[in-house]
Amino acid sequence: MKKILEVKNLKVHFELGGGMFKAKRVVHAVDGIDFDVFEGETLGIVGESGCGKSSLARALCGLNKITSGSALFAGKIDLAKASSKEWNEVHKQMQFIFQDPVAALDPRMTVAEIISEPLITLYPDMKKDQVLQKVLATMKLVGLTQNQVNRYPQEFSGGQCQRIGIARALILEPKILICDESVSALDVSIKAQIINLLQELQQQLKLTILFISHDLGVVKHICNRILVMYLGNIMELGNKQAIYSNTLHPYTKALLSAVPVANPTLEKTKQIQLLEGDLPSPVNPPKGCVFSTRCPQADDVCRASRPKGKIIQEHFVTCFKA
């Protein structure tokens, strides 16, 4: 399979505060991660809030600055040092779908204006008629009707707004779609509609999807491979079956056991691995393994040095114990 994105030792750091007399503090949001994304796959990125999954997604499409490392897009453009011309090329092929479907649409614009904006921006020579045809075709693709074209976002429900957001992303016919918690804010009955839509579109358009979510049920349903992040580091990476049925990393185990399942008998009997304490601050990550402060299996080795990633049974795992 062809690699569409090669991420090497990628770091995204933010500087906090730092006034005239205060030392700057650095948030290690993404702290040196390596992974590849293959064409046509759906890669799920999971982890708790503050694990850096959103910072990673936003860095890949230019919303956050990449501090160091590289992210090679389609084998030619390094996102860490792309020029604005190269970024425009990336924007044409990589689009983003946001979490809050309503906030992602400018309330002063009509549906047509919203959906056509990427097209007008990146293909300024396109004729108005052509643009409109394309808008209408894309609306049909995502299940919106043509007579909604001149309406304003306030008149739509959350699910429909998310369809508009998806249409805006798809009008450029991108290769990669980055979905940052794109179904989390939707109602249960609407969530399934949008998940199905994304899957259909993926098959139809041969899309590669980076699916960032905290909902492990949804991720399991939609993804081929899964990347588990914790405090800016990869804990475990592997295909779905490997991650869910042959879990190796203690953090993944804890995460999976904590997911409530819609089955009361199972819920009453299952053993939850409760994690002690909270996520450490990404300003001062632990010296050893980042998970060592909460890991039930941690020992002095874990607390003293960072484990290197290794490949076991088709998993990429970052743990001394695995």
């Binding site: 429900s157 959350g158 699910g159 429909q160 109602d187 249960v188 009955s189 609407i190 399934a192 509609q193 998940i195 199905n196 899957q199 909902d215 492990l216 049920g217 949804v218 399991k220 349903h221 939609i222 869910y244 999976l256 997911v259 399942v261 819609a262 089955n263 199972l266």
Partner: peptide
């Protein structure tokens, strides 16, 4: 609801809007 315990090919949906 996508269930972590068993897989389906396609989720059932409730048509329409809230």
């Amino acid at each position: 609801i996508p269930n972590i315990e068993h897989d389906v090919d396609k989720l059932k949906t409730i048509p329409g809007e809230p």
